[in-house]
Design a protein around this nucleic acid. Sequence first.
DNA 1: TTGGAACGGTGACAAATGTTACACAGAAAC
DNA 2: GTTTCTGTGTAACATTTGTCACCGTTCCAA
Lengths: 210, 210
Amino acid sequence: MDEPANLAFQFEPALIKEIEEFGELRSFKDGDIVMDYGKYIRMMPLVAKGTLKVLKMDDNGNEILLYYLSSSETCSMAYSCCLEEKKSEVKAIAEGDLEIIAIPHNKLDEWLCKYPSWKNYIMRSFNERFSEMLKSIESIAFHKLDDRLIAYLKEKKRLSGSSAIKASHYQIADELATSRVVISRLLKILENNGKILLYRNEIKLLHDFD
Amino acid sequence: MDEPANLAFQFEPALIKEIEEFGELRSFKDGDIVMDYGKYIRMMPLVAKGTLKVLKMDDNGNEILLYYLSSSETCSMAYSCCLEEKKSEVKAIAEGDLEIIAIPHNKLDEWLCKYPSWKNYIMRSFNERFSEMLKSIESIAFHKLDDRLIAYLKEKKRLSGSSAIKASHYQIADELATSRVVISRLLKILENNGKILLYRNEIKLLHDFD
DNA sequence: TTGGAACGGTGACAAATGTTACACAGAAAC
DNA sequence: GTTTCTGTGTAACATTTGTCACCGTTCCAA
């Protein structure tokens, strides 16, 4: 098994060897569920290729986007879950084709003291996840829906590297925890202002998109 | 320096000894700022007595409550900040009289591999903080303001152990990231429904408060 | 090719929240 | 005691967001 160059870069050789030995490469297709709400998590996913979308659900099945993980990032919440044998409080879905390296839960703790680079990676990851969550809270608590929508579209563009975003209004509404009608309305306003172009299942961001 | 019995309970003797040697006991009064937005954090606060309130601010000075820390709990975000020499993204304020044990940042990392009980404590703490943040996001994203207000009052009651909550409508509005008028309005409705009694700077929760 | 499902546009309206303005009461300062 | 400040009550209104209803279009599968 090969791990991506950017990971190899930060890990010491002995750790890379262990990752190659114990890590399991898994592939997912768009929409596949990697972790689910209420399920026990026995491995920590390390994103090798593609994007992993992490969501929070409430009891009524409403969802809201927490953050995206891309190459070489990992989900710290899975880490916590593994150590404490806890059920997942979040759901993770493949966004497009995805490859992860699944690190078995018994190695997580072992490597922490054995490999400083692993410890640093984990700690940095906790930190980044906290920041993402704070950004998410800030967005929900302080910004109006139109701003959040714009930020959402920008993030999608950044992750995909394309100005043509493939998504239905339904999906966007779900991830922003609102309704389809509201999103359609706001998108139409953006289109009328010359910021975007709307097609079925696709949104094109124009040059002067903020 | 003495650390509280509930902490002594979970730490091994050698670690307790180190905490006594290197930890610094600090006292704060109601409203004192323990950590501030944008400041570098060089110690991790371990709450010994009282309650520590943790807030997120946006660029316009708006604040929103993230969670409360009580005895024997700690702020994992401070931990992350210490390790990476990062500025704090949150603000922590003493809620009533507060005593903390300040753990110097150079010990944090050292103890992680030296004392399994410390590692477990830190990991459990990360986990709890993630849960609190998720709860916070769920509350903001999915619940209406009246429900959030009720949850807020309950939490205040739990932390203070008293049904008489000392707070102005202004303060509550700030922590829920809304305006005073809105809070006054909702509180008045609760009073008219026989759930609470309103006084100046005080709210009494009645028996059938949900 | 046809029927249904998914997608999106839009009007009308409801509900929740935000804003402004002002009045008054009690506490604190002088 | 008078003034000043802070906290609260309330009306009126604006804005934002949510909901329902209905329509036409596009896509896909039987």
